[in-house]
Nucleic acid binder design. Structure first.
Lengths: 208, 208
DNA sequence: CCAGCAGGTTAACCGTCGTTCACCGCCGGG
DNA sequence: CCCGGCGGTGAACGACGGTTAACCTGCTGG
């Protein structure tokens, strides 16, 4: 199992993997990041050793340091990456959705559901292992998170124009919690059904 | 072991009035457990040392071992305790709510909201630090969790009698996620308003 | 009044783990 | 054909943190 084996040449084996195009230029660095994310999600970042991460991609522990400055740097890159994708994605989706707050909310929900179903491991790491980041990186992540939340708050505030900002913020966090429950109810339901269920529940929660 | 109920009469020891002014007079054991829960919630169980825990109640690190066999045992007791309170509480509330599934669901939601608002720290530790428990304890906790979830699933299944068990389970987890978002939107909104908001959102999500 | 024990203290031990070091095989370009 | 550097290896190091040991103290019950 540890024998990850020969990865063939570049541009060779793309025929059978139509829908996983993004995971197919594996560039060691990204392999490591992905394997690490998986392990972090399962056991928690501090419980995973660099040897474990190395083993997961078929190398020894210290080989990691050819690609990352430190384990913390790895975690930082992971968390900042997620947070950026979320914050940027939300901005885009809102812009594409037009001026109606209802349409914008629907776009945000679709986006978050999609993300949660695609990246359950990252979701877990995202709010479990933030406190184990060095202060500076943690601050950066929190800034991005805040930006993302405020995106939601702005939309929610226009829908429920009686509510104050604190209520909208609580509402947003509640919807995140709802959608990000995917890692807990893993697998049983098929992905399309799960997506539909979450979208409906999130919409009811956000507007009801 | 030792009930330790005897609190050494009138307290006039040097500096025991550090940060435990509000709670009545819990035993050392419980003081430690509570302080540890707080620290675990803030930084993650593996990131807090026994010295930190000791310092939080005004003693040195190794003093902990007069009350607990190990740090893991402490965490285990904490998590098993939470899980038992939830599982037992749910059973009770359902029994008190009568035969109507709608009333039962409302009772479950009230209970979970109450718990989440009362124990944000425990909520966080509960699903962040489970994987850092030794296997046996982790299994016990998961059994209790499962019992709690099944309590919800049974009620939900009677409300949505078209849905299968997997869908109901996913629904239950989603509602947990929604309600357990309290630690993320800490404090801004007053407790009664927060409770009301969460109850309404949870109800909409569960039934909508 | 004395024994004993619950509960603390400091110092030391020891395993784990992140990180560094010195060395090495492979591969592509002058 | 050599050569540089990229990526990998095993060994070693140092810090940190859980746990234990040895010793101390002040109630409390007989």
């Amino acid at each position: 199992m540890t024998r990850a084996g020969t990865q063939a040449g570049p541009g060779r084996s793309a025929r059978d993997t139509a829908l996983i195009a993004d995971t197919s230029h594996p560039s060691r660095r990204e392999q490591i990041l992905q394997a690490a994310a998986q392990l972090f999600a399962e056991r928690g970042a501090r419980a995973v050793g660099v040897d474990d991460i190395g083993a997961a991609v078929g190398v020894t522990g210290p080989a990691i340091y050819r690609h990352f400055a430190s384990k913390d740097a790895m975690l930082a890159e992971m968390l900042v990456g997620i947070s950026e994708r979320l914050a940027d994605g939300a901005r885009e989706r809102i812009a594409e959705a037009g001026p109606e707050p209802a349409a914008q909310l629907r776009a945000l929900i679709d986006f978050q559901v999609e993300f949660a179903l695609d990246n359950p491991a990252l979701i877990v790491v995202h709010d479990r292992d933030l406190p184990s980041l060095p202060g500076a990186d943690a601050a950066a992540v929190r800034r991005l998170q805040r930006r993302y939340v405020e995106e939601w708050v702005a939309v929610l505030a226009r829908l429920h124009h009686g509510d104050d900002a604190a209520a909208c913020r609580a509402r947003a966090h509640a919807v995140f919690g709802l959608i990000n429950s995917t890692p807990h109810s893993a697998g049983r339901l098929g992905r399309p059904a799960m997506g539909e269920l979450l979208r409906r529940m999130a919409w009811s929660a956000a507007t009801g």
